[in-house]
Design a binder for these strands. Structure first.
Lengths: 79, 79
DNA sequence: GTGTAGACTTTAGTCGACT
DNA sequence: AAGTCGACTAAAGTCTACA
């Protein structure tokens, strides 16, 4: 077997879906949510479009703002 | 409340502990494991020392090499 | 209220050499 | 077999302006 490096687009999509769903559940716009977690509006948008390969610290900040454990954002909701 | 940005050292430690434990369980050295997942030996070492704020793609690569779901590496093992 | 594009700054990730 | 120190390249993250 070769190495295991990948683009991890799947994980990006999972985070994107979970983020959007939970943000809307809180009744927040991207703009409002961005302010809560301290990121720029356009950056939050690009994460929700699964364009971003975010770091642990960003994942943590999103999770805190959503009031969920970080690993929750990586959970696939097939149901 | 202000924004939610953080250094996420807690998450880094969680990943570090899970990675080391599972790598050892597979009977692999850092060097051997590094080759499996396609990263440099010194980089894997620094992740295990919780010095690194890794991205989703790296988390994914580590998880694949360990044959566990990515969110497993973010799970705190207090028990 | 969101998407896109671009220029910019910071940091993740690479690697060799020595301990 | 693992840690540390750099120097380097690639990409994360910031922000403004316009659609």
């Amino acid at each position: 077997m070769g190495n295991q490096k990948s683009a991890a687009v799947g994980l990006q999509r999972t985070v994107a879906e979970n983020l959007k769903e939970r943000r809307l559940r809180l009744g927040l716009s991207q703009e409002e949510f961005a302010e809560v977690c301290g990121y720029h509006r356009t950056y939050i948008g690009s994460i929700e479009r699964a364009e971003r390969n975010i770091t642990l610290s960003t994942l943590d900040a999103l999770a805190r703002a959503l009031n969920v454990p970080p690993n929750e954002l990586l959970r696939e909701n097939n149901g």
